[in-house]
């Protein structure tokens, strides 16, 4: 089974029905998969902090949300994570492509990669790093954990997890 489908299946199985996305090349497959699911309302956002606002509202309206974004967006969303998601104590699974890690072809991506885990740690955000395809097996438990504790939770998914960049 593809990891894209596995991730979408786990989201649906955990009642996640409202997903916002800002694309990354690594996330193209999973975004396409989510867009096709009848059980998930997919609402693309223009910036990740906007997307977190949408998720906060959807959760207060009774839906379980998730955001899919690139790790560079940690730089965009720190204020929103601290003053909205954490301050009001809201659950938010964040499926994050971890650009700038092993097998990365674009040098500039490394510049945010070196800050990603430190920023998440500074924010006390529970953080998981998927490096091998089998790591996806933990996704279901991470979703349950997120909605148990009402916190933002980061799932960093690197190029190796997604199968690399081929010949690039």
């Amino acid at each position: 089974m593809s990891i894209d489908r596995r991730i979408a299946d786990d989201l649906v199985a955990n009642g996640v029905s409202f997903v916002t996305t800002v694309p990354c090349k690594q996330l193209a497959g999973v975004i396409e998969e989510i867009d096709q699911r009848d059980d998930i309302f997919h609402i693309p956002s223009n910036k990740e902090d906007e997307g977190m606002g949408l998720c906060a509202g959807a959760w207060m309206g009774g839906k379980r949300p998730a955001i899919i974004m690139q790790n560079t967006a940690i730089g965009v969303t720190i204020n929103t994570l601290a003053t909205l998601i954490q301050y009001y104590r809201m659950p938010l699974p964040m499926l994050i492509s971890y650009r700038g890690e092993l097998r990365e072809p674009v040098a500039c991506q490394v510049e945010m990669a070196v800050h990603t885990k430190a920023l998440l740690a500074q924010l006390n955000i529970p953080t998981y790093h998927f490096h091998w395809q089998k790591d996806v097996e933990e996704f279901d438990n991470i979703l349950k954990y997120t909605f148990m504790c009402n916190k933002p939770v980061a799932i960093l998914t690197d190029a190796n997890f997604w199968g690399g960049y081929g010949d690039q």
Partner: peptide, 8 residues
């Protein structure tokens, strides 16, 4: 954005 998520 919060309001839109809530309305949807």
């Amino acid at each position: 954005s919060i309001g839109l998520g809530l309305a949807l």
